[in-house]
């Protein structure tokens, strides 16, 4: 009943989709964490207004489905004059999405730093930026690193939805293949396994990066 032979001629379609998904993931992981870090710092140390703005942004994104965010950005924004290609819309949507979730995660990390350390840094005459980069960030990120890893993987898996606005990523490839050879189950099964492999690989790569980033513990 199951027959995977019909998928072989389309292996380059799958491969192309896989590459696009990886590209999107790498790009938006960096952008999303950067946005999340910025927002978390604002949320933790900013004035009342930036705090409130960040809080509303986080709640708004966390309480609506990604597909609706994507549709709003891709279909809705052109109506008010912001034209976006499917690729741009996906990068923006994924970044905003990961940004909101990572804000919450990173903020928890920032909150875990004992107040005395921040005060001590101030007394030593360090500027706020120096305090952030030299005192707060490394231990804060170390604490929340596993949670951040999981969130990045969740966003990668969520990127499957982007096929709906015709970005030619992995799920789009699966849709295309099954429309050609009518082997829907097989092509989605293979795609699901590819996603599983990607998720496992991401976890592994994050672990390696984490070891490097936080290696100061062993050396000192």
């Amino acid at each position: 009943m199951l027959y995977f032979g019909d998928l072989l001629p389309y292996s380059d379609v799958f491969f192309g989709g896989l590459i696009t998904t990886v590209e999107l993931t790498v790009l938006t992981t960096f952008l999303g964490i950067a946005l999340g870090t910025l927002c978390a710092v604002l949320r933790q140390y900013g004035g009342a207004t930036p705090r409130r703005i960040v809080a509303s942004y986080v709640e708004l994104i966390r309480n609506t489905p990604f597909i609706v965010q994507l549709f709003f950005i891709f279909f809705g924004l052109p109506a008010i004059g912001v034209m976006l290609t499917p690729w741009q819309a996906s990068v923006i949507a994924l970044t905003i999405n990961l940004g909101a979730y990572s804000t919450e995660i990173i903020r928890a990390g920032l909150g875990s730093i004992p107040k005395g350390q921040v005060e001590a840094a101030k007394v030593l005459g360090m500027t706020f930026r120096q305090t952030l980069t030299r005192v707060i960030f490394v231990p804060a990120f170390e604490k929340i690193y596993p949670a951040l890893t999981s969130q990045c993987i969740i966003v990668m898996l969520g990127s499957a939805v982007i096929s709906q606005i015709s970005v030619e990523e992995l799920t789009y490839a699966a849709n295309l293949v099954q429309s050609r050879n009518f082997r829907a189950f097989e092509s989605y099964l293979v795609t699901a396994l590819l996603y599983l492999g990607l998720a496992m690989m991401m976890r592994y790569v994050f672990k390696l990066i984490g070891k490097r980033l936080f290696s100061f513990r062993e050396s000192s």
Binding site: F185, L189, A199
Partner: peptide
């Protein structure tokens, strides 16, 4: 398996798998 694959794929697999 279920945390490592997209929910969308799971939907497709349930939809097409059962009809298979």
């Amino acid at each position: 398996l279920f945390q490592g694959t997209p929910l969308l794929m799971q939907m497709f697999l349930c939809f097409f798998g059962v009809s298979l």
